[in-house]
Design a protein around this nucleic acid. Structure first.
Length: 431
RNA sequence: UCCACAGUAGCUCAAUGGUAGAGCAUCCGGCUGUUAACCGGAGGGUUGCAGGUUCGAGCCCUGCCUGUGGAGCCA
């Protein structure tokens, strides 16, 4: 007899099959009993009627607890009364393991309790939907870059010093070489890769030791960072919008069922088509002022500022040419206005904030040395990086996309902690 | 680091300063189409911790702990 998965049951109507999984829920009305089984790919309602099957099989029902593992065998039929649309007329049932009293009941729970049981919470339908969409987003990211001639180039996670010199980093002892730090960005290494290979992307985890305590922050998160030799700021923005369009379209195409499970309104997602609106930082400041928000030119946007700006558009908006003073040392200045950096951020709609940050990089050796000193950074730590300007320097640009914020936005979640299987936050290191 | 809010049964929550309760979960019983099934019954409590006010504190006051949201910083 065929052992099949629930998601492929439509191909097995009328056949007797075996499904291996776990008890999601059970209900009884005396002589007729229902077991809802999950197998990781979906839910299947199994029906058994007293007298139609051997009593010992029928009586197994009583011992089943939520999340007990079992094999169910029976004929598949279409039935609109069943969740998922298909139902199994159970003919046999083999218990693999009876679960102890399961902490997560079909009723509501608080976030803290669920986070303490994250390893079990992952079994619920909603978490399935989020993780499948996360998978789709990561698949689409790799697909996009792979199909556009980019080479995946992994950057190290242990680094000798701060990449940008601003964030607080996680520190660890590193044998006789002193301190090592967990990377906060693979970008500088990505630049070396772009000069070596033309166009590359770094895709890996990054770490920030800042005590950020908001719905948009994790201490460990994933970032994808493309870097392209000979690209300028405009090329960079075009790459970003084409990339975002592909990722969102892929989720809409392959994960509509999961978006439905999450009750996601896809209106804004369907709008993610290039070209995206592009405004300068100065224009963004004007928007804030028109909305009556007091904001001084030269500051960086806060969370609420980003929300107000993004609310003016029906799709992600690209903001470019920020004041250089709020941006990193390696960003190239605008030749038209030295006070501006050739930087760009993509703000997601509906208040999800910055999902992409990038820039054209400073490619002039002398200017870059000057910036390193202006930011109070030790030049010795950046000698290898300066080599990229000593030996065949070219204009180049890239950006970083935060995977968890992107998942949160596409899924319509109110907190990034549900976008990654095991979130790491300042007050949570377990499970 | 700062600001605000919260902590009562395994879980989610009630309880004017006056006998700590409900739903779910668990256990027992009933029900031939259930949909977070339903109906009847049972067990389950050091009200986060330490003090204080009061005849009397889950409730008021002080301190601490833990968590949540936000600010700063950022993706």
């Amino acid at each position: 007899m065929a052992r099949v998965y629930i998601e492929e049951l439509s191909k097995h109507v009328g056949e007797e099959v075996a499904i291996r999984g776990w008890v999601y829920n059970k209900r009884s009305s005396g002589k007729i009993r229902f077991i809802v089984v999950r197998d990781g790919t979906g839910l299947l309602q199994c029906v058994m009627v007293k007298g139609m099957i051997p009593d010992d099989v029928f009586n197994h029902f009583d011992s089943l607890t939520q999340e007990s593992s079992l094999t169910v065998i029976g004929k598949i039929k279409k039935d609109d009364r069943a969740p998922g649309g298909y139902e199994m007329e159970l003919s046999n049932l083999q218990v693999i393991s009876i679960a102890k009293e399961y902490p997560i009941t079909p009723k509501e729970h608080g976030v803290d309790f669920l986070m303490d049981h994250r390893h079990l919470w992952l079994r619920s339908s909603r978490q399935h939907a989020i993780l499948r969409i996360r998978h789709q987003i990561i698949t689409a990211i790799r697909e996009f870059f792979d199909n556009h001639g980019f080479i995946l180039m992994d950057a190290p996670i242990f680094t000798p010093a701060a990449c940008e010199g601003t964030s607080t980093l996680f520190e660890t002892d590193y044998f006789d070489l002193g301190k090592a730090y967990l990377t906060q960005s693979g970008q500088l290494y990505g630049e070396a890769g772009a000069i070596a290979l033309g166009k590359i992307y770094v895709f890996g985890p990054t770490f920030r030791a800042e005590k950020s305590k908001t719905r948009r922050h994790l201490t460990e998160f994933w970032m994808v960072e493309p870097e392209v030799a000979f690209n300028d700021l405009n090329d960079n923005m075009e790459l970003a919008e084409e990339f975002l369009e592909h990722v969102v379209a892929s989720v809409l195409k392959y994960r509509s069922q999961e978006l439905k499970t999450l009750e996601r309104n896809t209106k804004f997602l369907e709008n993610v088509k290039k070209p995206l609106p592009k405004i300068s930082y100065t224009e963004a400041v004007d928007i804030l002022k028109k909305k009556g928000i007091s904001f001084e030119w030269g500051n960086d946007f806060g969370g609420t500022d980003e929300t107000v700006i993004s609310e003016q558009f029906d799709r992600p908006v690209i903001v470019h040419r920020y004041p250089a003073q709020v941006k990193a040392f390696y960003m190239k200045r605008d030749p038209q206005n030295e006070a501006l950096a050739l930087a760009m951020d993509v703000l997601a709609p509906e208040g999800y904030g910055e999902i992409i940050g990038g820039s054209q990089r400073e490619d002039d050796y002398d200017t870059l040395v000057k910036r390193i000193h202006e930011h109070g950074l030790p030049q010795s730590a950046f000698e290898w990086y300066l080599d990229l300007r000593r030996y065949g320097s070219v204009p180049h640009a890239g950006f970083g996309l935060g995977v968890e914020r992107t998942v949160g936005w596409i899924c319509g979640l109110d907190h990034v902690r549900e976008t990654i299987p095991f979130p790491r936050m300042i007050y949570r290191l377990t499970p």
